[in-house]
Design a protein around this nucleic acid. Structure first.
Lengths: 127, 127
DNA sequence: CAGAATCCCCTACGATACTG
DNA sequence: CAGTATCGTAGGGGATTCTG
């Protein structure tokens, strides 16, 4: 994963999971509350959001601050380390945004040839 | 995942899985054979490698070329689309390489405080 | 509000064995 | 060589319900 073809033992430091990247993007501009994160991350369940945030906290990417108020308030913000991830993260997002149509088009094209081949197979095998 | 906090329906286009990134890196410098990919990707099973390559092919990231020889030879290479992923991929690898120590250190530190707290809990609850 | 607890499912990944 | 075929598993992810 790292230099050249040498495989890494620690694949991408949790950036590969489903939500870490999105959370980083949501925290780019400043601290956010738990519920503020749930909104843009449409319908992420509290369990999964908590798990992901805990993991990011463990890895030193976010800092959790709980205020002893009623009702409770908790804020999450990127640490200095977490902030260094914004750039590579943004690069990926830009790539996704820019090339999404091409990927979808490639999938469609691939599906078309697959279906066509299956039809041909059925046709030749029928009699 | 993309612009700002707006969530994406297609999360990172398979870049999140365990092997896609590594494969892209291995194909950076040119076409590679199936067996040539197995070596640097230590111990990836042929099944998983095949699955990942098929998915990348479907998404238009790699091109598969089979030569009708004996013994058989198959080469994989990045498409133009796949090549555009080299840069963001490299950015991530550089980040990983540069910050791996910090992440590991953060994990250790987190584990230390967790263990310490557990010990304290046991101590206070013992009598 | 910010989660903890519980239950469940799917699929990515892997080990092993076999084939054109 | 470059795969398929089968089987098995861990855990990431989700739905639902409950609580300080």
């Amino acid at each position: 994963m790292f230099a050249g073809c040498r495989a890494s033992e620690t694949p991408l430091f949790r950036v590969g999971d489903k939500w870490t990247g999105r959370i980083i993007r949501c925290l780019e501009t400043g601290p956010r509350r738990f519920s503020e994160l749930q909104v843009p991350l449409r319908e992420v369940t509290p369990k999964v959001l908590t798990e992901t945030l805990r993991a990011m906290e463990r890895d030193g990417l976010v800092k959790r601050t709980a205020y002893a108020e009623m009702p409770p308030r908790v804020e999450y913000e990127l640490t200095a380390l977490g902030r260094t991830l914004r750039e590579p993260m943004a690069a990926f997002c830009e790539w996704s945004a820019a090339h999404q149509p091409e990927v979808l088009e490639a999938r469609d094209a691939h599906e078309r040839v697959t279906l066509a081949r299956e039809a041909a197979d059925r046709g030749s095998g029928r009699f």
